[in-house]
Design a binder for these strands. Sequence first.
DNA 1: CTGAAAGCGCTAACAG
DNA 2: CTGTTAGCGCTTTCAG
Lengths: 336, 336
Amino acid sequence: MATIRTVAEHAGVSTATVSRVMNTPQQVSERTRARVETAMRELNFSRNSVAASLVTRRSDCIGLIVGGLSGAFFAPLVNIVEETVSAAGSYLIVSCGKDSPEEVLAALQFLRQRQCDAIILFPGELPDAALSALLREQANVVVIHRSVAGFEDRCVQVDNAAGARLAARHLLDCGHRDIGVISGPATNPESVQRLAAFADTLAGADVPLDPALVFAGDFRLASGRQGMAALLAGGKPLSAVFCLSDQMAFGALDYCRAVGVAVPERLSLLGFDDVEFAELMHPRLTTVRQPIDLLARTAVEIALRLSRLSPSGAPSCPQALLTPQLILRDSVRRLA
Amino acid sequence: MATIRTVAEHAGVSTATVSRVMNTPQQVSERTRARVETAMRELNFSRNSVAASLVTRRSDCIGLIVGGLSGAFFAPLVNIVEETVSAAGSYLIVSCGKDSPEEVLAALQFLRQRQCDAIILFPGELPDAALSALLREQANVVVIHRSVAGFEDRCVQVDNAAGARLAARHLLDCGHRDIGVISGPATNPESVQRLAAFADTLAGADVPLDPALVFAGDFRLASGRQGMAALLAGGKPLSAVFCLSDQMAFGALDYCRAVGVAVPERLSLLGFDDVEFAELMHPRLTTVRQPIDLLARTAVEIALRLSRLSPSGAPSCPQALLTPQLILRDSVRRLA
DNA sequence: CTGAAAGCGCTAACAG
DNA sequence: CTGTTAGCGCTTTCAG
């Protein structure tokens, strides 16, 4: 493998000069630059960024940690993050499949040890306390899809409560009273926020949410099926189910089809996320849209800012709390 | 930031010893190890893997380059690769959103410069010639989803021709004669292979494929819609359409629904991939399954082997050509 | 505009 | 079992 030194000798210059043609070509005379570039080509030189990072303490890499990519939710998120990062001339290192707190922490450590300039973290089940500690001790971490008290400037989140309220009101407006929920894990803060706001809104309309009609899923497809099975098996009156992710709504819908429960004629279904497939379903899924692209772009923006200005950092005011939106389609029926 | 040296001083040992407790703890006496570990904790030491990589010339990282993660195809692929890689104690660096040859090449360079131990490449539109050159000059690259002559031992591919034949026979068996295709880009080798085998099989049954009934899409959802629109607008008799990706089949299906063409009653639809959503569609999509998990696992296996044994490498015989399978569901109708 | 020299933080012989 | 000593390949003052 050719090194900067081989190139230098070959071109009859010093290593410093070779380094300059890579980093600050303006500082090198046209002639020498050409010579060096030829030498590089002839030796098939490939710079060792690892060595460079060691001295510069920068890697031009932004790390991203997300849970299972499986869902239709993470994939576009990752894509947009990648686009935004590379548009800014940096690179993205994705660490996916990190669901449990241990895995997340391990991934974080990995990225930090690799000298990532900043890290975007989708915290999954990581509790707020741990997150808070993390943000305190590591200045270049930004959290996506959660808001941590005291670190709002490094968090980008969708207003979960607002989204859940939108969902509750819509169901109420449509005349539903027998409402079930397929929620996320009880340990998941997003899920908790949504569920609480949903229940509150219902309660405000004198339609208290029956705890027996709340099934704790895990945001994934299979748990939607299980949840729907459980709710249906409960035997209680049920005219609508709010799923805390589209993915679970798909599972629920699939289960309904399998057992012959017509949606929305006999049961209405409301999702959360508005992933691409929501409008390909039959019936097309009514859902609460999260502005994934904005979420992603904002997170990257913050991350880049963090990585550019090492210590200080212009305050700037990233719109930390994004507004969800109700997307009306065909899976919720207005009761007569 | 604490370094190995700070820790060494703090613990009253040499840097070598600190290094040992990280890499070969067995070689350090329990007492010193404990002392060092305490020092590490007290100083909140975080190892600089970049420096380590510089000397070991290993990074314990496997790179993965894929196109847009958007489709339902790449996401599970990435997930399985990640799982397999981390099960082997390495880490995965994903470079996604690389569709054009330039982007792929840039990503490759990036990963190489970062000293990835091996790189798994989904070549997208990269022509065979370029790939071949690449494989020749870089010994640690493995290609997924394509086979390059002379480098079969570093390629994992699904038998595209076999898959297409399966599709063609099924359509013929069901009595279809007016068959259209929504294919991939003409520059995409996978697409070309499938299309050719499909056309051949049809021709072998005296049902030549009408070139006017072939629409070149890009494997993505939107192009499925466009393709179906084009085929329908053509006005030619059409009883079945073979889509070279499920994603395009979804688009086609959606278009059919929008314009009131009943599937499969008036038009049969056959996909390729068998992504998770295929069986959630209505009607459930009949499709040719690619064993994505096996694809991914095999690729990682090869990659790890490549990265462990630097120069040589046990020959081993990775099952390079995986067999696709026809998954019968509800989107293809048997003609009376 | 260019070169010499001093490291970045860590590992890896080689002694002891 | 532990310490000494060279670097890994690159960047970066500081002179010239």
